[in-house]
Simulated assay, not measured.
Amino acid sequence: MKIKTVEIFKIELPLIEPFIVSYATYPNMPSIITKITTECGIVGWGEAVPDEHVTGETLESTYAILKHQLAPLVIGENPMAFERLHEMMDKAVYNVPAAKAAIDIACFDIVGKKLQVPAYQLTGGRYHHKFPITHVLSIAEPQQMAEEAARRVEMGYRSFKMKVGRDVASDVARIRAVRERVGHEIAIRVDVNQGWGNSANTLQAVRQLEMLQIDWLEQPVRADDIDAMVEIKTKTTIPLMIDEGLRGVREMREIIAKRAADKVNIKLMKCGGIYPAMKLAHMAEMAGIECQIGSMVESSVGSAAGFHVAFSNKAFTSVELTGPLKFSKDIGDLHYDVPFIQLTEKPGLGVEVDETILAELTNEQCVVAQ
């Protein structure tokens, strides 16, 4: 089985509401979809959602890298040879993890369809039966976030990720408002997206948050400041999660060596896809660090890929893959049973792509063939 063609689609996924984090506001979510077809006619779908603030890639650079470097590289290769494919891509282009994820995910989709098994059977088999869905609250005024949280509780949600990172005082007010509104039975996770900058600001915040029963505090400081995470971890009882500070094996080694976090947020777009994500999960498991599969707000394609990783490995204790729930129109049909996600037994990613909607959302496309 060999790869015959790679089709690349630059699209824009329409959000129901703008997605607001500490460093950017997204009115819609730009994405790149790959469609890889083998010589025997099997089609696999992949996705790249680059972020210049996190992966160091832009939509334009990712499209160009796929078109001119990675897609031509994998033409004629066996999509089942995951290790070889990643070695080839790594030798050809340094970093660019979201671009590599678009190839990796499509290959897992192909192999699952070829063998007629769900993708999670390729990464360890089914371990988890289902995961609760965590609703993500974009940054807004305290009462606005509290009101949205209350509405979501009525819909069945039992956990929230709060996006903060504007400044310590207003962020603490946001967290307090949500906690007071939903009570203490609802789980709250706080994601700062590097917004507090350093350990001094973060320690000011955690002293005010200690009594609010926060599940964990995610990436409060700059991504590369692992030592600041170490300092904070020694001075608070709130569990710490590293997100932007973890991209690949090099960062994971440092996090493990310094015991810099209680939990790590593995994202396929940060590490290069399903295959590298499994390697990171195994490293974390050996070090006794819990894992989460996180989202760059992908469509059904990228979100399904993340779920397959999480469902097949016991190191994953939470998932945050809610992109499809945020779109008014999606290219795929990943199904959510709010407040849970339960994967089907369909082969590959288990997602059917509507090519009519894909064409409607596409701004630019190309085909790379033999």
Rank of each mutant, 00 (worst) to 15 (best):
I3E: 01
T5D: 08
I8A: 01
K10S: 09
K10G: 15
I11M: 04
P14V: 00
I20A: 12
I20H: 11
A24V: 12
S31I: 05
I36S: 04
G41F: 15
G44F: 03
H53W: 02
T58I: 03
L66A: 05
A71S: 04
N78G: 11
P79S: 04
A81L: 10
R84L: 13
H86K: 04
E87I: 09
M88A: 14
N95Q: 06
V96Q: 14
P97W: 05
P97V: 05
K100T: 01
I105W: 12
I110P: 02
K113Y: 06
Q121F: 10
G124H: 11
G124W: 06
R126M: 14
I139P: 00
I139D: 03
Q144V: 10
A146D: 00
E147C: 13
E148T: 07
A150F: 08
G156H: 14
K161I: 13
V168Q: 08
E180S: 15
I186F: 07
V192P: 06
V206Y: 13
R207V: 08
V221Q: 02
D225C: 12
D227L: 15
A228D: 10
V230M: 11
I232Y: 01
K233I: 03
T237P: 01
P239L: 11
E244F: 09
R250Q: 14
K270N: 04
G273W: 06
P276F: 13
A281G: 15
H282Q: 07
S295I: 09
A304H: 03
G306S: 06
N313Y: 10
N313G: 10
S318C: 14
V319L: 08
V319H: 07
L321Q: 05
G323F: 04
G323I: 01
L325C: 11
K326I: 10
G332L: 06
L334V: 00
H335P: 04
D337W: 15
D337Q: 12
G350H: 01
V353L: 00
I357E: 07
A359Q: 08
N363F: 15
Q365W: 08
C366W: 03
V368R: 12
